[in-house]
């Protein structure tokens, strides 16, 4: 019986309030597209486990209140209360960030490093592992997802917030975008 009890305690230990029980249920609906514990198995969707609570909460609320364009997520989050969004952000921020180091060539890494030094490093860090409310972790984030995100920032028809990010991304030359995502996607520290 002991082993079984332990399992229940573990299942239970996730939270001590009714709201927390609810957040487990809510979070499981996110797993479909973002993976168990927020580790995505699909290259076009981001891993979210281990990202800062403030960042996750901020972008979900920006989608909810139409301050950030999205193709799908803005419709999904509108059905959740601000408290639920905060609870989900807290839940996924407590998961472990599991960077997936994606292989790239030495040439691409070198080029990427020179571009990020000039353009990205100040906010995202040299290795992409120094997150804050505005700059999520991107070390070992899926390169396909990051490329799509940068496409959003570069396309004027897509209404993204964050003037600095837009300005920076739009001044990159066409050939510089891929090295940047390949560089950060290859990091694992």
């Amino acid at each position: 019986m002991r082993k079984g009890v332990m399992a229940v305690v573990l299942f239970w230990a996730a939270g001590t309030t009714m709201a927390d029980i609810n957040v487990d249920t809510l979070a499981r609906t996110c797993n479909n597209c973002h993976g168990l514990n927020g580790v995505s198995a699909g290259a076009t969707m981001p891993s979210i486990g281990g990202l800062p609570k403030g960042y996750l909460s901020k972008i979900m609320k920006e989608w909810k209140y139409d301050k950030r364009a999205a193709a799908t997520m803005n419709r999904i989050v509108k059905g959740f209360s601000d408290d639920e969004i905060d609870a989900l952000a807290a839940y996924f921020s407590k998961r472990r960030w599991l960077p997936v180091a994606q292989k790239t060539s030495a040439v691409q890494l070198k080029l990427g490093k020179s571009v990020i030094r000039e353009n990205c490093e100040d906010c995202h860090g040299t290795y992409g592992n120094d997150p804050d409310i505005d700059a999520p972790r991107i070390d070992g984030q899926s390169t396909e997802y990051m490329a799509l995100e940068l496409e959003k920032y570069r396309d004027e028809a897509f209404d993204m917030p964050h003037r600095k990010m837009k300005k920076t991304i739009r001044r990159l030359k066409d050939g510089e975008v891929t090295p940047v995502v390949d560089y950060y996607g290859a990091q694992k520290r």
């Binding site: 797993n31 597209c33 193709a71 028809a157």
Partner: peptide, 23 residues
């Protein structure tokens, strides 16, 4: 709707597939 929306969701369909199969 600008074309980028449709391009993104075509890409997301593939990400959705890989994730639901994994989940």
């Amino acid at each position: 709707v600008p074309r980028i929306y449709r391009r993104l969701e075509a890409q997301y369909a593939e990400g959705w597939l890989r994730n639901v199969l994994a989940d």
